[in-house]
């Protein structure tokens, strides 16, 4: 049953206007990225690569937040949720199926963006290598974590608020990555509070390998595995929280 829900969710997400529009915006952004390279007084290849990979992350996160927050809400609005839940289907299966379906759609979108980006970079003469692929895949994981964040916020609040909170989490998630280097400015209790609060947010900087990949800085297999495990654990935790909330929710 999870598979059926996942597949249906994936098809629905891929067909949604938000998904397609953001992909088109990504495509336009990629085409225009070369202009940034041209006006930079360098050969522009590194700058184009940076912009292309930033676009993949930003557009991916926007798709994840926009689609993730609307997912359950649309089911409630169209009253299809009641038809599904009237069947002998545990709610956890419904939530998990929804999340997996969203993940499938996001992975498809991210892979499309990565392939388009790499082909574009190749055509413009930029240096294309395996580390860029690794960076693209880690960005995909970042997007999946953000999808789990959005799903969790949807369960806890309204779709609009969930979208705002999702984007705020994205900002915080990257900001906390730099916190270990700044926390020495705080002392005593302040430092403890900052560390505890920062620990509540997923450290999205773990997936920003794109900043190093562009210079061919290698990533060890162990480091890669740790980042993947970190991402999968956050996804699991957030989905479990969502399930717990949805199970208790009066629909």
């Amino acid at each position: 049953m999870i598979g059926v829900i996942a597949w249906a969710t994936c098809r629905e997400a891929v067909r949604s206007r938000t998904f397609i529009l953001l992909l088109i915006i990504y495509l336009l952004g990629v085409l225009m990225s070369r202009i940034v390279g041209w006006i930079s007084a360098t050969d522009g290849n590194i700058i184009t690569t940076d912009v292309v990979f930033s676009l993949q992350s930003i557009m991916g996160v926007l798709v994840a937040v926009a689609t993730g927050t609307a997912l359950v809400h649309v089911e409630i609005q169209q009253k299809t949720l009641y038809t599904i839940l009237s069947r002998p289907l545990p709610r956890w299966q419904f939530v998990l199926g929804k999340y997996l379906g969203l993940c499938l759609a996001l992975v498809a979108g991210q892979l499309a963006m990565l392939i388009i980006g790499l082909i574009y970079l190749m055509l413009t003469g930029a240096d294309v290598h395996q580390w860029l692929v690794v960076a693209g895949l880690l960005t995909t994981l970042e997007v999946l974590v953000m999808a789990a964040v959005s799903l969790c916020w949807t369960a806890l609040s309204s779709p609009l608020l969930a979208a705002v909170l999702g984007l705020a989490t994205y900002a915080l998630g990257h900001a906390v990555h730099s916190l270990p280097g700044l926390v020495h400015h705080l002392k005593g209790t302040q430092q403890t509070i900052a560390i505890v609060l920062a620990s509540l947010v997923p450290d999205l900087g773990q997936f920003a390998y794109r900043n190093e990949a562009v210079y061919r800085t290698p990533l060890t297999l162990e480091d890669l595995a740790l980042r993947v495990i970190y991402g999968v654990m956050w996804c699991t935790l957030l989905v479990v929280i969502t399930i717990a909330v949805v199970r208790r929710k009066q629909l």
Binding site: S40, V51, H177, G181, L204
Partner: peptide, 24 residues
């Protein structure tokens, strides 16, 4: 410099270069 990384939201390279171009 210390706060720039916090503000870059994981797009350090892109932000640095856009700021650089703007500073021309």
């Amino acid at each position: 410099p210390e706060t720039a990384r916090v503000l870059a939201l994981g797009h350090n390279n892109t932000l640095a270069k856009l700021r650089w171009i703007d500073s021309f």
